[in-house]
Every structure is written in C-alpha cells, then in structure tokens.
Design a protein around this nucleic acid. Structure first.
Lengths: 176, 176
DNA sequence: GTTTGCATGTAAACGGTTACATGATTGG
DNA sequence: CCAATCATGTAACCGTTTACATGCAAAC
C-alpha cells in the first residue's frame, strides 16, 4: 500500500497532522505491516490536498511551525473505499534474515547462532509491543489485525526455538 | 536484501545466467521472501562483473542472444559472506490485505468475505507450491527456510479460518 | 547538557519496476 | 495458431528513503 492510501486510511479514523499520522502507525502496533517516513508523508498530504481528497486547516502556534490538521473529504473517503474494493497488490515479505539462513553453511556456526538469537529478540520485542496495547477502544478490524500479528509472531518464535538446531549443528565451513 | 546480494548468493551454489537466476528464485520456493525482475538482475550482474565479484563467459548460440554464464569469484564470495556477517536490514512484511482488514468496517461484508477467501486461496497456493518441492538435494539452510515458510503459512491459514467471523459479522456500514 | 518530542518541509539519491525492443523454438 | 520458453538488455518512470534545514521546550 502506498503512502497516499495509508494516509487516507488513518484520516478515516479522525483528523490528524502529518506528524501524528506517522506516530499513529508506529504506535498502533501495525508498524510491521505498514510504514512511512516524513519524506513521503508530507508530499503525499500536499498532493491529496491538491486533488481534493483531504482538506487542511492551519493552527497557528507560537515558536513552532503551524500545525496543519488534515481531514478527509467525502471524495477522499469514496476514493479510499474504492481502492480497497479493487484487487489489492500481493503481500511481500522481504526477510534478509531468511535469506541469510539459506546460506548458513557458509557462515561460522557461532554467528548463525547469534543471528538466530538476535532475530528471536526482535520478534519478542514486537510481540511485547503488540501486547502492551489494550484491545479496548479498537475496531473489530484493528483487533483482528493485532491478533493476526500475535499469531504469526508466536508461530515464528515457536518454529525458531524448536528448529534452530538444524542450522546450528553443522560443521563450520566458514569464510576463508 | 538487494538484488546484487541475491545474485551473489545464488552464484555461490553454482554458475548461472541472468535468466536462470530469476527462475531459480521463482522455483526455489523462496519467492515470497526474495524477488527480482530482469530489469534489476541484468544491470546488477554487469556491475558485479565490473567490480570483480563475478566473471562471465559467453556461450555463443544460434538464433538466440549469447548465453552469458556468470561465476562468482573468490573476491565475490568473501564480499557475500561479509555482507551476511554485517548487521542485516530488518524484515518488512508489507501486507495490503492486512491493511484492508483494518478498515473492514468501511466495506460491504460480502466483499470482506471475498477478500478473505481470496487471500486464503493465495496462501494455500504458496503452501502447495512449497510442498511440491522435495526436500532432497537441499542444503540444511534451504530445508530450514522451507519448513519455516510452511509453518508461517499454516499458522496464517489456521488463524484466518478460525477468526474470520470476527470481521465478517459486523453490521455493514458500507460506502455511500 | 544532551536527548527526546514537537512540527514542517525540500532535494538528492536510490533501488526497483514496467514497458519496450528483438526473435527463434517448442508445446499445447 | 497462440502461448510459453529461452535469452539479453535499455530507458523511462516511480515511490521511497536519507539527509538536510530550522528551532523551541521539556524531561532526564
């Protein structure tokens, strides 16, 4: 999903500034599935404004840039729904870790172990982050997505813990 | 992982042409984790050649472009291992489906059901594709990655089948 | 006293995809 | 007869990231 669509989606839940949009997606617990940087969010919002999908009001502030609060327009809302009704792009799960594991036999086994440990740590962190959010005040969709994340993370952890020996127990044929 | 590194990785397993590199990754069962198009593979191979990471020999063919068979050089091999030993970029799982599910309440429930069906079908296909490859003649790493894929796909399917009602059973508050 | 949070934006660079160009052979 | 397989490559385009620019206030 492109940043434009992500922004529209967030704005269906309420008005927000560019800054807040970024925070909402970082803290919402979806950061694994959807992400965006300021360098893409701000231009996306300007373009959405030009196209009439969102409207802005500037709130003056002292000693800070004006807050630009964006609202989705009826046109923007229809466009957003229309995007979701069209066939969606496929998932892409880019995993440098998985790629590296394909070549575990080329690496010192101590390093493979360290990589697995590190990856497990990362997934544990994401799980903890997910669990730190209460399910209250969430839509059905949000709760569904969070449960989905938990399930996938837990399956991942379980797999790594029970199968790691298979790539750790081979004769080190390490780098020259 | 960038296309350059992917190409180097494949070439550690044996010589190949650009065309074959693409096929290997499509058929290897990793296509969900790593992917690349010709438009990125061919330039990557030229650059790797210029930099001394791979070498080429041209095999003349009648009525077809010459096959350019690439081999990884010792320098390329060390560089590849060095890349894997450095801290890896984080996984990114971009899922338009998950994103859409966050907004299930904005969509007609029949469409949500159709989306879930479609997504389940896709995952089933990937699972079948994974299972169609025998584990024989695979490295430990490859077997590990395939098992990992199976685990994650199965957990996904299981979750969707047991939890889909949670997003399907809400009053349709569809698009205007 | 330094980091974090608030708050916006631009420009250059990057990596990649898509479409195009070419063209014979084989299988359905 | 048409689609797929083999086989390479270029060029335009696209979306995004990264770095830069600015700057105060509050928390640690």
């Amino acid at each position: 999903m492109d940043v434009r669509t992500i922004c529209l989606g967030i704005l269906t839940r309420g008005d927000a500034t560019g800054y807040e949009i970024k925070k909402l997606f970082e803290e919402g617990g979806y950061e694994h599935f959807v992400e965006a940087s300021f360098g893409s969010i701000y231009p996306a919002l300007s373009r959405l404004t030009d196209e009439g999908f969102v409207s802005v009001r500037s709130e003056a502030q002292e000693k800070r840039p004006d807050r630009k609060v964006y609202s989705i327009t009826p046109v923007g809302r229809s466009a957003f729904v229309a995007t979701l009704l069209k066939p969606l792009p496929e998932d892409r799960h880019r995993s440098p870790f998985v790629f590296a594991m394909l070549f575990a036999d080329l690496l010192p086994q101590a390093h493979v172990s360290a990589m697995v440990d590190h990856y497990i740590g990362q997934v544990e962190e994401k799980l903890a982050h997910l669990n730190s959010h209460s399910d209250a005040s969430k839509s059905d969709g949000e709760r569904f997505v969070m449960d989905y994340g938990r399930t996938v993370y837990e399956a991942t952890l379980n797999f790594l813990r029970t199968h790691r020996a298979e790539i750790e127990n081979q004769p080190a044929q390490a780098a020259e």
